[in-house]
Write a protein that binds this DNA or RNA. Structure first.
Length: 345
DNA sequence: AATTCGGGGAG
DNA sequence: CTCCCAGAATT
């Protein structure tokens, strides 16, 4: 039996029932694929249900506000996915008569749709013989065929795409693409795969050479940058606070947060006070008190945010104050959501 | 070719 | 702690 046939047979016996497996609707396939980019199935599934319920069609998504989309996306991370999702929905509705492109090239032109996602939609929705290469596929192919080329080198990206194309089942690409990913996720797992029971253990190069743990090869560990955040949690006489939207480049674009003072290192109340003076606060400050003596360390994949929350009591009302209750309506980073959740006035 | 985008779960 | 997840866009 061929490589692809073995994978397909394993899939028939072991596949999970997932909500997007029962449709070919390109809208729902696209939605599921974007949600699952760099995201585990168990983490993404609740979001898929939320989005399908809130936006049954691409028109519903296009007609929504970006804030509503971001709010639904809150907690999933990589928020450019949500912004691009919304932008693409608008394009599909206004320029493509509500229909998704039915070619790989057409799909690839959509914002937030790269090589993997275009291949996934093309194959799953339209049966186009285009191989998907995600993290699972890299692992399965690298191990089975004993490929030592780093998967995140430009050479590796080309090599694995070509290899994936050679071994795919073009007659049944819809199932095959999902099968090899599922196989990588469940059977050929990153750590301690149970090779003894693997249907591919016969021809697996890595198993034969005892290098399962060494493949795939991956380069470049990102260095983590340390940042120091001081959030100003204003409270005016009406017990209202203030949120502002993050603009420009960097993390959490278009999400909301408390007014932020970033510093080069941990600072005390005195230093913070001088920083705030520069902001020319119109509302005079009655008091500043630190909520958390030990900074909350919020860890992103490439930066650690050492965060202090300062309660700033004001003598005068804020111009655009928000009642504490309303803060939960805004899309915010998990760091802020956790604080709002635990903070009781 | 490298870096930058989040958050969570497994080991 | 480290690694990695149905990756894409930007520099």
């Amino acid at each position: 039996m061929s490589f692809s046939q073995k994978v397909l047979q394993w899939y028939q016996e072991h596949k999970r029932e997932l909500p997007w497996r029962n449709t070919k609707d390109p809208y729902k396939i696209w939605l599921s694929e974007v949600i699952l980019q760099q995201t585990r199935v168990v983490q993404g599934t609740p979001y898929y249900h939320k989005f399908v319920k809130a936006f049954p069609t691409v028109q519903d998504l296009a007609n929504a506000s970006e804030e509503k989309v971001l709010k639904l996306w809150q907690g999933l991370g990589y928020y450019s996915r949500a912004r691009n999702l919304h932008a693409t929905a608008k394009i599909v509705v206004t320029e493509y008569e509500g229909k998704f492109p039915d070619t790989y090239e057409g799909l690839k032109r959509l914002k937030g749709v790269g090589d993997y996602t275009a291949s996934a939609i093309a194959s799953i929705s339209f049966g186009i013989p285009e191989p998907v290469v995600d993290g699972n596929v890299y692992r399965v192919l690298a191990r089975y065929f004993g490929v030592e080329i780093p998967i995140n080198s430009s050479q590796g990206i080309k090599y694995f795409k070509t290899l994936a194309r050679e071994v795919m089942d073009r007659k049944n690409i819809r199932d095959y693409n999902q099968a090899i990913m599922e196989f990588g996720a469940i059977q050929c797992a990153p750590k301690k795969p149970y090779c003894l029971l693997c249907p591919l253990n016969d021809g697996c190069s890595a198993l034969k050479e005892n290098r399962v743990a060494d493949l795939p090869v991956k380069l470049n560990k990102t260095k983590v940058k340390q940042r120091y955040f001081n959030y100003l949690v204003f409270l005016d006489p009406q017990m209202r606070t203030q949120l502002e939207q993050r603009k420009g480049k960097g993390i959490w674009q278009n999400l909301y947060q408390f007014p932020l003072v970033e510093s080069e290192k941990l600072i005390d109340g005195e230093e913070l006070r001088t920083q705030i003076q520069a902001l020319d606060l119109e509302n005079q400050i009655k008091s500043i008190s630190l909520r958390n003596k030990e900074p909350v360390v919020h860890k992103l994949s490439h930066q650690h945010l050492h965060t202090r929350f300062w309660m700033v009591e004001l003598a005068k009302d804020l111009k655009e104050g928000i009642s504490w209750k309303q803060t939960i309506d805004f899309p915010v980073p998990v760091l802020i959501a956790d604080f709002i959740k635990t903070f009781k006035i």
